[in-house]
Write a protein that binds this DNA or RNA. Structure first.
Lengths: 238, 238
DNA sequence: CGTCTATTTGAGATGCGTCAACCGTTGTGG
DNA sequence: CCACAACGGTTGACGCATCTCAAATAGACG
């Protein structure tokens, strides 16, 4: 787990040894999701807001969603981004404690929690799958905490880009060139920086010949090894 | 959830609506814990380290434990503190991804994951209790992320003190005067600051008449209302 | 083409980090 | 019982990374 993983739920298989059993595929859940209500929302629309009653579990089908919390004076901390395949709404109790807002036109599968309950009774492995998903999200959040708490602006942006690169590699997409679906403001609020610092750091990386920026929203990583060496690696390196 | 909650697992009851059922008390787990192996460790000893195989779930009985991650150059991010009643080792997959180190002499109940598995089979509510505990830990980590990413040094320290105060209130202890079991270094690495800044900020709060520091490790909150107003509140205030 | 928004760039201010010295407490050995 | 070392904490002076404020530029869209 090296990445600040800007994901709501990373999908790496994670075996719960004390339970045993393969929970990677759950026909019950997948069937339900395939039949579930499809919701289409525009960029900037909310999936749900802080304080809303938690009614559904959502899975992103296309698009992207930002999860964030805000302070009363408007300061905002983006906690993660959810991409296709990711679940949103996990770990909520009665009410959502974060905001989930689309950052581009998005299609969502909506699964009522009552249906989830039903599937869970039929197939107890669902509970462990949800547990794993939650554990992955916790791991990603801890990673981001390490990043915002300890790394410099440049290290933060590099870690962010490398996390996107790794995600693409996992999904079989190009790990060296990709679009950034989020604005500079979203990136800034994710990394605990200002948009000006994010922008300046992008140009610094470009000037150093480490990345290319064909458009503001598209990156190409030119020297991934040097980028990795700038990331501020974790200690164990196991 | 207003606090940066320096806890590994906060113990507030949290109902999983889509499951239903009261999971607050689990005779199976509690009986097992009571019989579980008791481990005593000194300050600075590890409960486990990053990369260790995950073998047990631990519950702090007395003392306190810090959870943290480190970068290869030694920078450290404390993710939380575990106090009596808190669980440690939740959400781990095969290997622990964080370090857990006692910050004072500590007694731990050690529950082998195999025993956990056994209890889970006997009583499926255990799975949901673990899910809830993990969700609480995620909520606390998100809170801390908001703090380190968006708040000033002063706001961070105030949020930290108020979180300890709230924890004491929940436990029926004095919310206005308490010991700080951790060092300034631990606090600094928790809040993403340096020890000098933490020390100066303590002094500033003392000078402003907001707190008293009889010893370095004891605080008394003199004007909790004003402290709350300095915390940088969250938006919803629901 | 014009407007609106997002992004970039610049100049200056500042909060926090760095480096260094000092202080108080604790524990240890003479 | 005292001397001293080790450690954690406090305070000061200074520098710098990042923030703030401001303006220019580039893209997107009607």
């Amino acid at each position: 787990m090296l990445s600040p993983a800007p994901t709501a739920v990373s999908r790496q298989p994670a075996t719960l040894k004390f339970i045993g059993g393969d929970t990677d595929e759950l026909p019950g859940l997948d069937q339900r999701l395939a039949k579930a209500l499809l919701r289409r929302i525009e960029a900037k629309e909310f999936v749900f807001a802080e304080g809303d009653p938690a009614t559904h579990l959502y899975q992103v089908e296309t698009g992207a969603v930002a999860l964030y919390k805000v302070l009363c004076d408007g300061r905002r901390q983006v906690l993660g981004f959810a991409y296709p395949g990711d679940f949103i709404g996990l770990g909520a109790q009665d009410e959502h404690v974060v905001n989930a807002q689309a950052i581009k036109p998005t299609r969502l599968r909506c699964l009522p929690l009552s249906a989830l309950s039903q599937i869970a009774r039929q197939d107890p492995r669902l509970g462990f799958r949800l547990y794993e998903a939650l554990a992955s999200e916790l791991a990603a959040t801890r990673e981001l905490l390490l990043t915002t708490g300890q790394r410099s602006a440049c290290e933060r942006l590099v870690a962010f880009l490398l996390a996107l690169s790794r995600r693409n590699a996992r999904k079989g997409q190009d790990p060296l060139a990709f679009d950034l679906p989020m604005t500079r403001t979203d990136i800034a609020d994710f990394l605990g920086l200002t948009i000006e610092t994010v922008s300046r750091t992008f140009t610094k990386l470009r000037t150093l010949g480490l990345i290319e920026l064909p458009h503001a929203s598209r990156v190409r990583l030119l020297d991934i090894e040097r980028l990795k060496s700038m990331e501020g690696n974790e200690a164990d390196a196991a």
